[in-house]
């Protein structure tokens, strides 16, 4: 890793592959950015552009003038923060026991968990549940349903299974209790998976609007994604969703891509800013020095 190695053909292939994939994945982003900064006619003229034309911030302005933007931003941040915090706690507590192969009842519990990943009662029973918990029109109704998923739990458990048992045994011999082992030994060693699940959970919350549609009644409680979706539909006068014939639109048949793309950018940017902080946890050698002798 630190020896001055020459650039081998192996490196060459790697770099080439990565560059090609990067070009392909960068393109849509550039396209979205460019269109969001262009005029509508410029978009129609060339929908695939990566360079803005008739550069203007009209689409962004249209989003920014809404006071609901800020309240929905705030809501999304609260929801994401609570959801990630609550979720991580649950994941850490639950994954650790399940990572122990000797745990009695492990198989049953795993089946119990996997079952929940596949079977779902649908929006009506979930609505009833939230209603009886008195959580309709609260942010908690958005936080709770997605806080703890079997999928993430299994990922964390798998990671923890890889942690050498000698560490725990050594600690136990020193008289450490399970909580101590979990929070003082396992958790620090699990930083990569915790960071990963934080990222996954945060993104899931940030992009979500479906829960809000079902449980939220007042505009004050809208999360960001829902607000942005509604901006788009109000711009096209909701002719489609009302089921009327498309001729009922008072404005022309405009699919306001410039606006749509601007909303995408508004949603994406915060998450992209978070990622660099998470990246540093993906460092090799986290186990280094932990197993002595």
């Amino acid at each position: 890793m630190n020896t001055k190695t020459r650039f081998s053909w192996f490196d060459g292939i790697n770099y080439l592959l990565v560059i090609i994939v990067c070009a392909a994945t960068l393109y849509p982003f550039l396209n979205v950015l460019a269109v969001s900064l262009s005029s509508y006619s410029a978009y129609v003229e060339n929908p695939l552009r990566i360079w803005p034309k008739d550069m203007n911030l009209a689409a962004y302005k249209e989003i920014m003038i809404h006071p609901v933007l800020w309240s929905s931003y705030r809501n999304s941040i609260i929801v994401t923060a609570c959801g990630v915090a609550g979720g991580m706690l649950l994941y850490i507590l639950s994954a650790y026991p399940l990572s122990k192969r000797h745990l009695k009842g492990r198989k049953i519990i795993m089946v119990f968990i996997v079952f929940t990943m596949l079977f779902n009662g649908g929006i009506i029973p979930n609505f009833y549940l939230m209603r009886s918990l008195g959580l309709i029109d609260t942010l908690a109704a958005i936080v709770l349903p997605m806080m703890f998923s079997g999928f993430n739990l299994i990922l964390m458990k798998t990671f923890m299974e890889n942690i050498p048992e000698e560490l725990e045994e050594a600690a136990k011999m020193d008289g450490a209790s399970e909580p101590y082992i979990l929070f003082r030994i396992i958790v620090p060693l699990s930083k990569p998976i915790i960071a990963t699940l934080c990222l996954f959970t945060a993104v899931t919350y940030w992009n979500n609007f479906f829960q809000a549609i079902i449980y939220i009644r007042s505009v004050d409680n809208w999360p960001l994604m829902l607000f942005l979706k509604e901006i788009i539909s109000s711009a096209s006068l909701a002719a489609m969703s009302s089921g009327g014939n498309s001729a009922e639109q008072g404005i022309m048949d405009v699919r306001p891509e410039t606006l749509q793309y601007a909303t995408l950018m508004v949603v994406m940017l915060p998450i992209l800013c978070i990622y660099p902080f998470v990246q540093k946890y993906f460092v090799k050698g986290i186990m280094l020095g932990s197993v002595k002798g």
């Binding site: 809501n75 609260i78 929801v79 923060a81 609570c82 309709i136 609260t138 942010l139 908690a140 409680n221």
Partner: peptide, 9 residues
């Protein structure tokens, strides 16, 4: 924190 979340509603 969860209580704070629900308090908004």
């Amino acid at each position: 924190m969860l209580a704070a979340c629900s308090g908004n509603g």
